[in-house]
Amino acid sequence: MSRSTSIAPDHGPITTSRRALWLPGLAFAAGGAVAATVVAAAADAFGVSLEIGGERIPLLGFTQLAFVFSVVGVALAASFRRWSDRPARAFVRTAVALLAVSLLPDFLVPDADAATRVTLILTHIAVAAIVIPGLRSRLR
């Protein structure tokens, strides 16, 4: 009778139920970055200024920041997977709290109009809607 456990040299047992996190996590991060860029581009097409303090936020800026901070989320998920008894729950709680904190500057930017603020908030939510459930599914 075969089992789903194999022995890897110097690494102990590895079960087939333990799914990879980094490669799918990077895919979720890329998807979130694309979503942020699409939201910003759509707002730009509808005439939203995307200016803060007289300087325009480039579309690539949305892509880069969304990707970088999503990769930070992947690292958090990997940490919770390793050190938490309930990694999915700990990750979701932490990610939602960090999402809430990330929205604060959008409300406090003094030189942005309402449409720009709403766009910034929507980009955060678009990224979170892809990355958080995706990573959560990998932590079960």
Rank of each mutant, 00 (worst) to 15 (best):
R86K: 10
A41W: 12
R138T: 03
V71G: 09
R93Q: 11
A126F: 07
F28G: 04
F69W: 04
R19I: 08
V68I: 15
L60N: 01
A77N: 10
A115S: 14
R89Q: 13
S17N: 14
G12R: 11
V39F: 01
G61I: 02
P24S: 05
P87R: 08
S102R: 05
A27M: 13
V74M: 03
S17G: 14
L23T: 13
L21M: 06
V74I: 07
D44A: 13
A29F: 04
R117K: 15
G32Y: 06
I121P: 00
M1P: 14
D10N: 15
Q64T: 15
L139D: 07
L103F: 06
F69Q: 05
L50W: 03
T15M: 03
S79M: 12
A95D: 07
S2R: 12
V74A: 04
D10R: 14
A45T: 10
V109I: 15
I7F: 11
E55I: 07
A97I: 08
R3G: 14
A33K: 00
I125R: 01
P105L: 04
G73S: 12
A45I: 06
S6H: 11
L104S: 09
A45S: 14
F46R: 15
I57G: 03
G134S: 05
R136G: 12
S2A: 12
I14Y: 12
S2G: 09
S17V: 12
L60W: 11
L60P: 01
A30P: 09
S2D: 13
G31K: 13
F69V: 04
G61M: 08
F91E: 07
F67Q: 01
T123L: 00
I7G: 02
L135S: 00
L120D: 01
A88Q: 09
R86I: 01
V101I: 15
V38N: 00
T116G: 02
I7P: 07
A29Q: 04
A8Q: 11
G47S: 04
F91A: 00
R93D: 01
R3D: 12
R136T: 15
A129T: 08
G25Q: 10
T63N: 03
L139K: 08
A129I: 05
G47F: 00
P13K: 00
F46K: 13
A100V: 11
V127D: 00
V39I: 06
F28I: 01
G25H: 06
T123D: 06
G53F: 08
G61E: 06
G73L: 09
P105F: 02
R89C: 07
P9S: 10
D106W: 02
L23P: 06
A40G: 02
F80D: 05
P87N: 02
F62S: 00
L122V: 03
S84Q: 11
W83H: 15
D113Q: 14
V39Q: 03
S2W: 13
A20E: 03
L135C: 00
L65T: 08
A35Q: 11
R19Q: 13
